[in-house]
Design a protein around this nucleic acid. Structure first.
Lengths: 106, 106
DNA sequence: ACAAACCATAACCGTATGGTTATGGTTCAT
DNA sequence: ATGAACCATAACCATACGGTTATGGTTTGT
């Protein structure tokens, strides 16, 4: 099942992919726009977007010949959940986060 | 610089490595003990522990011929910090977490 | 209708990485 | 003193993965 903690961790493990996600948190962008300043080729950007999509970290909306991508920060929830399980120290605070996230998922 | 968000993300991207970290959060264990139920060979466990150590996610203490490892959940701080930067939704709550973590680092 | 723009996929390449077995260095027990 | 237990490192292997260029399918502009 995609969108699991495993996929999310793997998706965010790569710096280039993380950078793409970071840019998308500041607003929707097309593949073309993302390719500029990404440091890699357009096909590579598409590949990275696929990985992010498997992890449900991004959504895409096709509009004519261009595909607009946007971040889904709620997809970070599995990470928060994992941390609340194994990052014992701040458990109480993270529990609240978990609730917040559930409400956000609608 | 080790212990960065990059190292932490990379270290946690592998399921086996994550499982080792998870077991260590429940208490200190030797390499020998970790090898049992890990599903991989002892040398591999040592390698994974090295990766976790680079990310500062574990500490080790040598006692005679055995090496005792323990988790350092505070090392998850870079993840929290990153999420507070790019997981925009729960920013306020994570800020508090950040403070908490700084205090914990002593 | 044609050419160009946009994106995804295919084919390919080199390296990083997870895994193994073999080995060697300490330390403990006898 | 010797053998066994514990761990780390070396040597090696297969595969996963990040990267490229080439290609083809839609859509847009003229």
């Amino acid at each position: 099942m995609p969108g699991s903690a495993n996929h999310v961790f793997k998706a965010l493990a790569d710096p280039t992919r993380r950078a793409i996600f970071e840019r998308l948190t500041r607003g929707e962008l097309t593949v073309h726009a993302l390719t500029e300043r990404s440091g890699v080729s357009q096909p590579m950007v598409s590949k990275h977007l696929s990985a992010l999509k498997r992890a449900r970290l991004v959504r895409n909306r096709r509009k004519g010949r261009e595909t607009h991508y946007q971040a889904r920060p709620e997809a970070l929830a599995p990470l928060v959940e994992w941390m609340s399980d194994y990052g014992a120290f701040w458990q109480n605070r993270l529990d609240k986060l978990g609730e917040l996230l559930e409400r956000m998922e609608k």
